[in-house]
Amino acid sequence: MKIVFSLILIFLILLFQIGIVPHISIDGVFVNLILISILCLSILVSWKSVLGWIIAGGFFLDFYSNGFLGLSVIALVFSCFFAYFLSRKIFKEKNFVSLLLVLIPSLFSYRLLIILLLGVFRGSFIFDYSSFGIWLLYNLVFSVLVFYISKYLHNKFFISKHEKSIPKI
């Protein structure tokens, strides 16, 4: 039942990402729901538990991008591990500020890695400061939203009443 629910949820995220998100861009900048969902799961659960989704999500993003296959996988693995590390070792206090302090560097590292790896692949680096800033802000807003929705769904459907150990934020 949990697996079926997870698969339906993932399918809905993919549907939104390829169908609806390209229509709600700000200055050509999109929200990356796949990145956001996997990042939030890495923080909530652990990056090891979502490694399969990181790899699948990364390859899916790569097919719909213009770099080499594996580019998004590498960036996702690193940023999810980074998010998990920050939330467990550095910003251990479970509050809204800590959440922001975990999400901002994780999103930043993902985007930067993508730009750097693409630059190495193509032999030229194209960096647009304003576009980067808009991307970070736009995805941060959605990340906070998705985090709280994921937390609610995780508590409601994936852990039993006796196992409620997710700290409150």
Binding site: Q17, I18, V21, P22, S25, G28, V29, F30, N32, L61, Y64, S65, N66, G67, S72, I114, L118, W135
Partner: peptide, 10 residues
């Protein structure tokens, strides 16, 4: 289809 990461125009 279009680019879904917003990195490139294709």
């Amino acid at each position: 289809g279009k680019d879904i990461q917003g990195l490139d125009d294709w």
